[in-house]
Design a protein around this nucleic acid. Structure first.
Length: 261
DNA sequence: AGCCAGGAAGTCC
DNA sequence: GGACTTCATGGC
């Protein structure tokens, strides 16, 4: 390890388990191997002590941004009123969560794979995709060149056709860049025009791939939570520009009852 | 055997 | 606009 930081509102274990990144490899003992942005990092956390395998220059150039280090999560948590006992508990439970700033293309692929799927199998599918691409994350051009049958052979099911179509469209790098330049609503609308991308997956791409914190993905967990704990409506207005983070606290809090590691 | 998983598309009305 | 149904796959 080449550097050590003091980490507040930050937990590698919680981030890894929270269903936003699927290729971290747990090494045991609080350590993770993290491939991202064309780099790799080994990170190990004990309490608020975070040890990293990178140089300070690489931290500043790559990982500081990736971990969303400079967003004030304490300020977001402070928006939750104490009388909201459910969210108060959820925020305390997932106090170390972050919305990583991951690569847009990786997020598009990841959440195409995620639809009607579960987290352990999403990991397996994405690992199989990486292995088929020679050990790196498959590029858009690579997916565009795959016969659908080759992708189905990896266990991707009907999502194989969606991945191929996305590969063809996003091989044009300008299409990725255009998304980055749009505000949330317009990015969401443009994403929904792609085959295999509906409202929920588009929101995940906006939140995790474009860091639009207004995005509020409504998956089966969140829909159920809203029915149970907010039958008269969720106070979206209270969480303007951070609803996506609040959503992530709720999602992660809900996972603890599910049997997913 | 049936239901669920970070859903979307197609087909009705 | 909504409410079904179908689409692969694996785990429980």
């Amino acid at each position: 390890m080449s550097m050590t930081l003091c980490a507040a509102d930050f937990s590698l274990a919680q981030i890894h388990a929270s269903g936003q990144c699927f290729l971290w490899q747990p090494l045991g003992g609080g350590a993770y191997h993290i491939p991202a942005m064309g780099h790799t990092l080994t990170a190990e956390q004990h309490g608020d002590s975070l040890a990293l395998s990178c140089t300070e220059a690489e931290w500043e150039r790559v990982w500081r941004d990736y971990f969303d280090w400079d967003t004030d999560y304490a300020a977001i948590k402070a928006r939750v009123p104490k009388r909201d006992t459910y969210l108060t508990a959820a925020v305390q439970y997932g106090a170390g969560l972050r919305i990583l700033r991951q690569d847009l293309w990786e997020i598009i692929v990841s959440f195409l794979v995620s639809q009607n799927n579960n987290i352990p199998r999403i990991r397996k599918n994405l690992q199989a995709l990486c292995e088929s691409a020679g050990g790196v994350f498959p590029s858009a051009a690579f997916l565009a060149a795959q016969p659908e049958s080759a992708l189905r052979a990896l266990g991707l099911g009907y999502r194989a056709a969606y991945l191929r179509a996305a590969g063809e469209y996003f091989s044009e790098n300008a299409h990725l860049q255009a998304l980055r330049n749009l505000p949330y609503k317009q990015a969401h609308e443009r994403l929904c025009a792609r085959k295999g991308i509906g409202p929920k997956v588009a929101d995940c791409i906006c939140l995790f791939g474009l860091h639009h914190l207004d995005a509020f993905p409504l998956d089966t967990h969140i829909k159920q939570i809203l029915q149970t704990h907010y039958p008269s409506g969720f106070p979206y207005a209270r969480y303007a520009h951070c609803a996506g983070v609040i959503q992530q606290y709720m999602f992660y809090y809900d996972l603890k009852e599910g049997a997913q590691a």
